[in-house]
């Protein structure tokens, strides 16, 4: 039941991302101002949106974990943050490349969106030392959820504060009501965004499935070999995942 759904998700992701990047290179017009380098927009912005949405989703799972005490939600919250941090590295790298190409410098402090993203990234990067520092697994899960909720509330506040503090250099492509983006570019962008969202979901499902499969394997081995079975060295911070966790995220 689970394997075909993962496979379908993977195929949809590959198709959608493939279509998106085909559109980027063969359909979307060249930007009059920035030329070819503007194409990184179709990678950078979807990555950033998916990463931030992932942090928010982690917060929602954390709320559900605290309300229900069900470790499945903790596992989903952990995996969401994990992948969003990885996407976040991609955002900072692509943002930096774009900044260098269009403004001539690798890092621009006047650029509120990139700076606020860096702050959010720094905050979520402390999620790992936080989990690592707490030995008791139940407490670790609970405290990690408290962190995920607090950090989730922090994200919009941080964007507000940083944006107010700086001049507006960053392109605001969707800000104008008359549509700052031509239709063909917007369509390409939306396909890329959908592809990236599928990729994020797909990777989350794969990681959850892998974790639950290894937990199941451990259980079976223990049943087979009895007390003599020595569990392999498992991560001290990744939550152990019950097998239900691999079902699609809702």
């Amino acid at each position: 039941m689970k394997v075909p759904s993962l496979r379908a998700l993977s195929i949809a992701t590959i198709l959608c991302l493939g279509a998106g990047f085909t559109l980027v290179f063969f359909y979307a017009p060249l930007d009059a101002d920035q030329g070819f380098v503007q194409k990184i927009f179709y990678l950078h912005v979807p990555l950033a949106i998916c990463s931030l949405a992932g942090f928010m989703i982690a917060g929602v799972h954390a709320i559900r974990h605290l309300r229900s005490g069900d470790p499945v939600h903790d596992a989903r919250s952990y995996v969401s943050i994990h992948l969003s941090v990885i996407f976040g590295v991609g955002v900072l790298l692509t943002g930096s490349i774009w900044a260098h190409a269009s403004w001539g410098r690798w890092w621009v402090w006047d650029e509120p969106t990139l700076v606020s993203f860096l702050i959010v990234f720094l905050l979520y990067a402390t999620y790992y030392p936080l989990r690592y520092a707490i030995e008791d697994r139940d407490r670790q899960a609970r405290y990690a959820s408290v962190f995920a909720i607090t950090a989730g509330a922090f994200v919009p506040l941080n964007f507000l504060a940083v944006r107010m503090a700086q001049s507006l250099v960053h392109p605001r492509v969707f800000a104008t009501t008359s549509g700052g983006l031509p239709g063909s570019m917007l369509f390409t962008f939306l396909v890329c965004l959908a592809g990236m969202a599928l990729l994020w979901t797909c990777l989350v499902c794969f990681e959850l499935a892998a974790k639950s499969a290894s937990a199941k394997l451990s259980r079976l081995r223990r049943a087979l070999e009895g007390e003599t079975y020595a569990a392999p060295n498992r991560s001290r911070i990744a939550p152990s995942v019950p097998s239900r966790a691999a079902s699609p995220l809702t």
Binding site: L123, T126, P129, L130, A133, I134, E135, F154
Partner: peptide
């Protein structure tokens, strides 16, 4: 409160708190 029940109390407080205090 999170850090008080962890092993790395003195490390965790500045690490987690400073990014939270940037706004």
């Amino acid at each position: 409160a999170i850090a008080a029940n962890s092993r790395a109390r003195d490390l965790l407080v500045p690490l987690v708190l400073l990014p939270l205090l940037i706004p």
